Structures are given as C-alpha cells and as structure tokens.
Amino acid sequence: MSKPFDMELFLGGMLTGSHATRQRHLRQARTIQNAIAQHWQLEIPWEWQQKHLIWFLKHCLAGRNEATRYYYLLTVRLLARRLRNSWAFNL
C-alpha cells in the first residue's frame, strides 16, 4: 500500500506569508487535489496538466463568490510555479 501524497511537503518551500496564508494554500491545494483525483483519477500534481487546473477553476468554483475564486486562483498559480510550468490562469 502506498502512502498518500503529502501536499505540505510538495508546497513547503514555495509557501510564504503568515501562518494563516500558508494553511489556506495547503487546505485549498488539498481540495484541488481531491477534486482532480475524483474526476480525472490523477492522484499527484506531477501528473496534472493545465487543463486539469482550468477545469477545477471553471467547474468546481462555479457559483462561488469572487473572493473565493481569487484565493483559489492564487493557489493554482502557486501549484503551477511549483510544477515549474509557465501556465497562465485567469478568471
């Protein structure tokens, strides 16, 4: 049996700011990870493509308020930077 993917270890070096900000990014990254795993069966971020993150932003955040979408967008950009991709995301 394999260990679950550790999002905190994955993003650890990328997280800056206050403790609350770091915890928010980790919580949102785990939410993104769970949604992509359920829909696309891709468990780890190294398997993700830009289309997976765009899908999350468009479909999973539909109906959410603007502030929530903005904070998730920041987390998605952080994930893309950690994956060393120059993907562009806009809402």
Rank of each mutant, 00 (worst) to 15 (best):
V76I: 15
L83K: 03
L42S: 01
S2I: 15
L53M: 15
Q50R: 12
L79T: 03
W87G: 08
Y70S: 11
Y71S: 07
H59Y: 14
A35Q: 06
K51S: 12
K58H: 11
A62Y: 09
L83F: 03
T75N: 07
M7F: 00
V76C: 05
W48K: 15
N65H: 09
C60P: 00
G12E: 00
T31N: 12
I32T: 04
Y72A: 08
A29N: 10
A88N: 11
S2L: 15
R24Y: 11
C60I: 03
A62Q: 10
M7G: 01
N65T: 08
C60R: 08
H59K: 08
T75V: 08
N90Y: 10
G12M: 05
W87A: 08
L53C: 14
F10E: 09
A35T: 06
H52T: 09
V76R: 01
K58D: 10
Q33F: 04
H25A: 09
R81Q: 15
F89C: 03
N85P: 00
R69A: 12
Q33M: 13
F89W: 02
Y70I: 07
S18D: 05
E66W: 05
Q50L: 12
H19P: 05
L15D: 09
K51W: 10
F5E: 01
Q41K: 09
G12P: 05
G63N: 03
M1P: 13
I44W: 00
I32G: 00
W46M: 10
Q49H: 06
W87K: 06
A67Q: 12
E47C: 07
A62F: 09
H19Y: 09
M14P: 07
A29I: 07
Q41F: 02
L79K: 03
Q38I: 01
G17R: 00
Q38A: 14
W40P: 04
R82A: 15
P45W: 01
H39L: 04
A20W: 03
L26H: 06
L53A: 02
V76H: 03
L9Y: 11
A20Y: 09
L78M: 08
R77D: 05
I54H: 07
H59L: 04
M14S: 13
L91F: 10
L74E: 02
Q41N: 14
H52R: 06
L61M: 10
Q28C: 08
N65D: 15
G17N: 03
